[in-house]
Amino acid sequence: MSFLLWLESTGFGTFVRESESLFAYPTFIVLHTFGLSIVVGISVVVGTRLMGLAPTIPLAPLNKLFPIMWFGFAINLFSGSGLAAAAASTTIPNPLFIAKIIFVLTAVAVMVVLQVKVFRDPEVDDKPLDTMSKALGGSLLALWLLAMISGRLITYIA
């Protein structure tokens, strides 16, 4: 607990929480939504494509979307750290927050596997997609949805 209180009292945590500037809390919230729209938005495209939507889209070119997804994730890692630090002692012990972080980390692991095993394979479009890849696509969508639900509820259920 003392670590969480320390985290709250750092300059970063205090700035996000207490500064009257629009660049403090409101901007961190906006950045978190921007990053979300990038990483989850593009995951929707990648995940639904793997699950069979728009099969005429070749998979190999979609590999180029991954750096953009990681950029979105980086925005949220930064903005999320700020928001969590600002209310560390109440947010971080919240079971919903812990659940959200587990969903996010699992989604990130799925993204890594998809990028390395599926989209970087030069022959990915020459063979039918295996069931594992389809399941990973679906899991990615489910995990982001669960992360969004638990994240939203943190505000309501303390």
Binding site: L36, S37, V40, S43, V44, V45, L65, M148, R152
Partner: peptide
């Protein structure tokens, strides 16, 4: 609110593509 965000991710994903 959650649906507002979920719908937004569908819209933005396709819009980005």
């Amino acid at each position: 609110e959650t649906l507002h965000f979920t719908g937004m991710t569908l819209l933005f994903g396709v819009m980005f593509l």
